[in-house]
Design a binder for these strands. Structure first.
Lengths: 127, 127
DNA sequence: ATACAATTTATCAATATTCAAAGATAGCAA
DNA sequence: TTGCTATCTTTGAATATTGATAAATTGTAT
């Protein structure tokens, strides 16, 4: 496996690993949007929006188009949304997994000795 | 969009955003593997392997099975590999993009005035 | 007890995040 | 032109998070 590909993946996932940046990508899914519009919807300072956009821009995930005093951003490759979708599917699968595990514990709990409640949330931060 | 899903995505992408962890997932693609085997293939200290595995474990991306003194790890949800695949496709698309842009510049360069060399590497770190 | 496998902890360097202030740049009006 | 405003970007400083390394610890088998 090429090292450059692995470096790319690392930088790419790093760029996505931020709640605001994920929100930005979600918003840009509907099409291009100005920084102003983004700022209004995100409800954070405009400098903050610019900073997060800069991260996405430096990784060439988004690109900008200037029009008057406004700057419109759009996602370069729609496959980025696939990434978000797959992540969502993994999230859902984990939820279902946890839920059916809990149900099974309840069933067994009715007749057997009390099971240890070591239930950890699926895919969550460490304790 | 649910906040919990966004937090999940953030944590998930953060977990993937590391070259060693990506290599680990690539290795686990073939099936489960002991820490020892991983350590041999990765050529890093065993404590380093454990640490990276801990990150993946805390996000419930991998799970462990103990057998004697060995611990075997496997990926919980194969959809994780989809994530890596989509990232690879985005990488390839960016390469093709850059290449055809360069070719176009060369064609035009033969007859027109010298084009500005503002060629940025696709999806790379900032200058 | 010894050896082996794996994990945890401690420490320090390197990166990333946040917020506010200061800098561009385009449009517009006097 | 000059000055003013709106939009966006960049910078700096404080804080927080992450990374790498080595040392100490746990657990299991012989």
């Amino acid at each position: 496996m090429h090292d450059s590909l692995r470096r790319f993946k690392t930088e790419f996932f790093k760029a996505l690993a931020h709640p605001t940046r994920i929100r930005i990508l979600e918003l840009l899914r509907a099409g291009e949007m100005s920084v102003n519009e983004l700022q209004t919807k995100l409800e954070i300072e405009s400098s903050g929006v610019s900073q997060q956009l800069a991260v996405l821009r430096n990784r060439n995930i988004v690109e900008a188009r200037k029009e008057g005093t406004s700057v419109y951003y759009r996602v370069r490759d729609p496959q980025v949304f696939e990434l978000l979708d797959v992540a969502r599917r993994i999230f859902n699968a984990a939820l279902i997994d946890t839920q059916s595990m809990l149900e099974q514990l309840e069933e067994e709990g009715a007749s057997e000795d009390p099971p240890e409640r070591t239930t950890r949330r699926a895919y969550a931060r460490a304790p």
